[in-house]
Design a protein around this nucleic acid. Structure first.
Lengths: 321, 321
DNA sequence: GTCGAAATGAAAGGTTTCTTTCATCAGATG
DNA sequence: CATCTGATGAAAGAAACCTTTCATTTCGAC
């Protein structure tokens, strides 16, 4: 076999960098664009393993990615490791030594991308963590209940909250009928919200700055007997009093703009919970559709050629089931 | 004190309890007093591994404890596992289920809301952290530069990405002129994107599932000489090749839907950075306006009473600015 | 259409790891 | 002291794993 140019054969591994102690993720990023489709799937699996890489065997990773063990072996060599065992060892020490998120939340460690961006992310990590800490489980459950029980559902969001409202609606239409967005361009609120009834509900995204109309909408719903869920920042006060349930999110921004990472996360959870509560059947059907789509859709990674499950009797085949 | 010890030979393992799902530590505590000296040392090593048990081989644990591999094999059987591999698998799932991520995040013991929501938030913390770890500073700087230098800027987002695109646009219009959203309902793309020039740029939000039109748009921009920034998940491949700069976000969702907390955060940072780079004057002026607004606007927080509390007729029409 | 390069999985090969057997050793008991 | 019980490691044996080879497939170029 004549090895020339950049052909990648088994015999010609990239020259090993002397004492390369970059974490696995960094290595992946460094070569990601040059990876093959199979390898990219592997990369995803590895990253998804959330730092638990060392807990897996190469073959397991391969199975999860739907590729052969051989490809896995090649993959880790490509990442600059001598072999999988070295990768595993490295991952293990990374875990204990460098990478607990712990350090990330304690602002300003060097693991994050340098500079402003690191600070920014640290801020959002805090926003998420704080939001989670102060979330009232009862309120959350109640909110889910309201959305589940609603016959018709309006989602309201102005200004900064409009994008969030749109997002929420995009999720909820997957699991529920009769979900409407307010305001719709070109319509007046009167048209939008006509005929609110006691078995309807509204989901209000109310981050500052809240136009006063927001309170009027909430009051209107209250008068109509409809229940309301408000998602808002900590400054909401008068508005909050008008809602049946309030879920608060930390949204302090590190720089010019407020952050909506935590609201996004809360909305995601809320909609998932509603979907699950609405019956697994409906959801299963929908996720099934989703998966079907993914299979039919090129998905941008290229055709997924699954090798017939490597070994049906494999011990780990049922690990996650 | 003669304890009547049950003979323990290889052949006579304790009868396996049907589906014993106690964590490893609990098992150890349950039998600790009955362990031999070697086994106690092993037990200590296992506990010291802090849940990373799955990352070690039986032999390694034995080495650390200063005992033979044979003793290790016996030890795990004594803990009620069929063999070491079963123990390893159990430890791994414990990690994901029993002692969830948020203990790793250093937010502290028990402070996150319990249950599913905690797991959900933990997932998003991971998404954020991993996005930060993996972010290429050079790419980020380049993306900022492209957006700053753009004479006209289009923001593109379909499906799931539409809300994000809308959000990005909402931020960017604050700091830049000539920022347009694509697609706009009722217009064809041809109308939207007509006349792209080399000094224009497009910001593409491209999370899966990506319609093929996305690639066409990127190709179009490339042919026109306009630079492009793509924000996408890890599966973007063919699409990514068409963009000038790619910023990748982790968006794995804990439940039904993908998460967009990290993209939200990245967009926020990106827009802030663009704003800052565009000159402090402009930004200062804008933030000044912002603060002024806050002072004049009741903001829902203070006892400030609006003179005319009911001028709702047209007030919320200014939602965009 | 043909050719070649690249990618990939099946299978073989070689290595490591886990388990069991077995002999030794330590401590208790009579 | 002799004997017995149980713990323990060495080593053999078995099983699982990782790597490499090699044939096949895919994809693009000509």
């Amino acid at each position: 076999m004549t090895v020339k140019k950049t052909a990648r054969t088994e015999a010609n591994a990239p020259e090993p960098v002397a004492s390369d102690d970059r974490p696995v993720e960094a290595r992946i990023r460094a070569v990601f664009d040059g990876l093959t489709a199979s390898e990219k799937r592997l990369a995803e699996v590895v990253i998804d393993s959330q730092g638990d890489l060392a807990a897996f065997r190469a073959g397991e990773l391969a199975d999860r990615a739907g590729v052969s063990a051989a490809t896995a072996a090649r993959f880790f060599r490509r990442l600059g490791y001598e072999n999988y065992d070295e990768a595993r060892r490295a991952a293990r020490t990374e875990r204990n030594w460098g990478s607990p998120l712990y350090e990330l939340t304690g602002i300003g460690e060097r693991r994050l991308a340098a500079g402003d961006f690191g600070l920014h992310i640290a801020q959002d990590l805090q926003n998420l963590a704080r939001t989670a800490e102060m979330m009232n489980p009862a309120a959350l459950a109640s909110a889910i209940d309201i959305l589940v029980a609603a016959r018709r559902l309006w989602i309201v969001g102005f200004r900064n909250s409009a994008a969030l409202a749109s997002y929420a609606r995009g999720l909820l239409v997957h699991v529920k009928a009769d979900v409407r967005l307010v305001p719709i361009a070109g319509q007046t609120l009167a048209e939008d919200l006509v005929g609110l009834r006691p078995d309807d509900a509204i989901l209000v995204i109310g981050f500052r700055r809240r136009p006063s109309i927001l309170r009027e909408i909430l009051a209107l719903a209250g008068e109509a007997g409809a229940r309301s869920v408000l998602i808002a920042d900590l400054t909401a006060d008068r508005t909050a009093r008008l809602a049946t349930v309030v879920l608060r999110c930390h949204n302090r921004g590190h720089s010019l703009f407020d952050s909506y990472a935590a609201p996004m996360s809360v909305l995601n959870h809320l909609c998932s919970a509603v979907g699950l509560a609405l019956g697994e059947e409906a959801v299963n059907r929908l996720t099934e559709i989703e998966r079907l789509h993914e299979r039919l859709d090129p998905l941008d990674v290229g055709p997924v050629r699954r090798p017939a499950a490597r070994r049906a009797t494999s011990k780990w085949a049922d690990a996650e089931k």
